[in-house]
Nucleic acid binder design. Structure first.
Length: 348
DNA sequence: AAGTCGGGGTC
DNA sequence: GACCCAGACTT
């Protein structure tokens, strides 16, 4: 443990980081504002998401939903549409719920107290600390993967970051180097972790605190952080039926209890009456972080008016065309089949 | 305390 | 193919 370490011995590290951050902060749209709404949205967008990947989503989201009121009054499906392709879709659902919390519980004014921010849906200890420190001069460390990596290296600390107590452990460790300006300190740790103290091949030669980094001086950078738990990908086999006629096709909305929460998809099954209209089958494989995905897609061209209307009447599927589908959020692996409907035969 | 949730980049 | 990313929620 670090009970034997004193703040006064390490505070200069945090001050060096602030100085480095003043000159080297990344030029990002949400760096120019202290609007808690925008900081909140950017923190959610970039959870487990690289800046390059989420930047367009963030900009589009802010343009369409510029404030809490606009967001709260918009339908959930449209919020999901602006989250299309980002993954972790419960983030979009929770953002929408939280916006209504802010309207109902805080008169539409984003709460400034850490404990109040923490009550909002989808906001945990990290995000509450980030928003409160950046926007309201809060003093909580925004402990994330960057904190784990930077701190474990500076102190050559082998505490297992997959341990559920890692958040508290590294919160205490960060207190040793945390200066008065916590908002800039939190962002400095993010930028250092992303630009310099990277997971692989960190740029230690350019690091402003390499003189203070114990792992670097021991030439053991690659040994930190320690992480024991591995996530094993599970196999998931899906079947979808691309049932279409005259440019229209059938879709339904998923539940919120599994992968692709509340996103739209093709029917996962059909009645035997439609079997004669199956023209072709194709299997596509996708590698997700936690899933090995195999999707069997059936091309079902219904060239019978009566069969089409009978099937629709018997089920609750929605009918759409390519234009209409653009107003809904589909899982990434299904996007191709919608975008290229005109050339669907080339796909199959 | 352990599982689950996407998609994409990097090595 | 394994690991990681401005984590939070459920069980």
């Amino acid at each position: 443990m670090e009970k034997n370490k004193r703040n006064s011995d390490f505070l200069h590290i945090g001050n060096k980081l602030l100085k480095w951050y003043d000159k080297n902060a990344r030029d990002l749209p949400f760096r120019k504002t202290k609007d808690p709404y925008k900081i909140w949205i950017c923190e959610i967008v970039f959870q487990q998401t690289r800046i390059a990947q989420g930047l367009n989503h963030y900009n589009n989201f802010i343009e369409r939903f510029p404030d809490v009121k606009t967001l709260a009054e918009s339908p959930e499906d449209e919020v999901l549409l602006y989250w299309k392709g980002l993954g972790y879709y419960s983030r979009a659902i929770n953002i929408h719920k939280a916006s209504q919390q802010i309207i109902n519980d805080y008169n539409g004014i984003f709460p400034s107290d850490y404990e109040d921010i923490l009550k909002l849906k989808g906001i945990g200890k990290y995000t509450a600390a980030a928003v409160s420190s950046i926007c309201f001069d809060g003093k909580m460390p925004a402990v994330d993967g960057n904190f784990y990596r930077v701190l474990s290296r500076i102190f050559a600390d082998n505490f297992d970051i997959s341990n559920s107590r890692a958040f508290n452990y590294f919160s205490e460790l960060s207190a040793l180097i945390m200066p008065e300006n916590v908002g800039d300190f939190n962002q400095a740790m993010m930028d250092l972790g992303s630009e310099i103290c990277k997971p692989k091949n960190p740029l230690c030669g350019e690091c402003p605190v390499n003189d203070d980094c114990l792992a670097f001086s021991l030439n053991k950078i690659s040994e930190f952080p320690v992480k024991t738990k591995k996530v094993k990908a599970q196999d998931l086999d899906l079947k979808y039926y691309f049932v279409h006629r005259n440019g229209q096709f059938l879709i339904q909305q998923r539940k919120d209890d599994f992968i692709w929460k509340k996103l739209f998809e093709f029917p996962p099954m059909i009645s035997d009456d439609l079997n004669p209209f199956i023209k072709s089958v194709k299997t596509v494989n996708h590698k997700l972080t936690h899933k090995n995905l195999s999707i069997e897609i059936f091309n079902v061209e219904v060239d019978s008016e009566s069969a089409w209307e009978d099937f629709i009447a018997q089920n609750n599927y929605m009918i759409t065309d390519v234009e209409g589908s653009h107003e809904r959020s589909f899982p990434k692996p299904l996007e191709n089949y919608i975008q290229n409907y005109e050339t669907v035969y080339q796909i199959f």
